[in-house]
Design a protein around this nucleic acid. Sequence first.
RNA 1: GGGCGUGUAGCUCAACAGGCAGAGCAGUGGCCUUUUAAGCCAUUGGUUCAGGGUUCGAAUCCCUGCACGCUCACCA
Length: 505
Amino acid sequence: MELSELEKIRLKKVFELRAGGIEPYPTRANRTHTSQEAIAAFEAAEKQADPAPVEVTLAGRLRAIRPMGKVVFAHIEDGAGRIQLFFRVNELGEDQLRHFTEYFDLGDFIEAFGVMFRTRTGEVTLHVHRFRMLAKAISPLPAAKDEVVDGQIIRHATLSDPELRYRQRYADLAVNPEVREIFRKRAAIVRALREFLDERGFLEVETPILQPIYGGAAARPFITYHNQLKQQLYLRISFELYLKRLLVGGYERVYEIGRDFRNEGVSFKHNPEFTQLEFYMAYADYLKVMSLTEEMLAYVCDRVLGTRQVTFNGHVIDFNPPWRRISLREALIEAVGIDIAQHPTTESLAEAMRQKGLAVKPNAPRGKLIEGMLGDFVEPNLIQPTFIYDYPRDISPLAKNKPDDPNTVERFEGYVGGMELCNAFTELNDPLEQEKRFLEMGRTYEAEDEDRHPMDEDYLRAMAYGMPPNGGFGMGVDRLVMLLTDRRSIREVILFPHLREREDD
RNA sequence: GGGCGUGUAGCUCAACAGGCAGAGCAGUGGCCUUUUAAGCCAUUGGUUCAGGGUUCGAAUCCCUGCACGCUCACCA
């Protein structure tokens, strides 16, 4: 580890403390109160006629030090917030006060025992009688100063370099409280999703991440290898095929929240590993799932934010059910003036697109062309929660046909804030039809196409035992967190987002 | 992968049109017994992302590379 001049000075203090018989990293701490507990205890005592002194031992990280000769003010930060410490020569003596100013730096963890009081300016503060080092920091935290105005912390020269923030998330979290708040909210969101599903009789399960055959979505997988079994394995790109096997097994409602891995490009809404929620519900269809989706997101908003009006990217998004519902066909007529029902073949659709001056991707099947127009012309405008429903069969090999239309499947996608948030369908449960679809996919796409769905014989075998009709649902949890925390980049809601490897790391 | 942009002290940023690389905060030394971006005096600190080129002279202009951001393509 290369040390800066600043770090060398601090390291020297570590050695000097040890030489003086003081352990700079003691084994145990003796905190009695958090910052907020101490303040609450003092304020409660203040209200009494003849209050006893409130003695506490606090612990936390030094975030501000203001020496004023024979007294020193400091602020420490702990998990609950901030609190001021007051050091005075009268109680501590010259030696101890000097010990503090010489050996304690910003970023150090300190333990302080004393009596709570209120300063002239009215701030509830710990009058320190004893203190000791809990953990000496060698490296300075990458932030300059905080100012507290009316209880609000204003940070001057805040850590803002995105690279440093993501690579050294610990430093980002240490100095940016609002970043800590994002991940508290993220935990609350996931908790609310679980509560919602648990309350409705869903069973949470865990299915393989290492899979011999990947499937359930259109994406390139990460490939790995099991040495002893001499077997190639894939990191899952979805949970779908395993969760539906469980319906064959007799569970009627299952869900999983976990990580998917897709070997694709990264962007503001894509990370190579991301968190997905999928659930499957026997005897439901996609309309039922649509309603449940509305209910679930409203529930999450209520639990996490206390409101269903969410500000995202300058828009106020209203999660109150019902969401706008529009068929894919109508949405495309509206957005690009092409009626896909009038163009049942790839060639006919491609021709219509050319007439509108749209680029047509060569060799793309009909469904991909439709999907392309959806992404280009519809998705960015879907700010308020919207369900787009009824998708082309050829891009939805696991979804069931509409009874009266063999080219269209019962599928919907939920869009919010201009992003696709979730995807769901009435699940295909006819094993013969499913086999046909797998074979179709193999024919429609080139062998190397990432959208090719590999044949999963075991999945077909499972379905052959009988799978109840069911509705399935998948949602990008990271994107939901983006929406509910008003973050425009997925990297802001993933603690350690993927970054290119650096040589000097 | 393509396009645009950014990279300067520990942190946040300056440095015009090529002419001695700077400020605030942090650090260090000193003064200061109710401050809160404390203040005052003094002071340390640089491979200007890396490598090459043009020039009497490069943080600045050119080339290559690296990283990050935005964006396009693919995907949730």
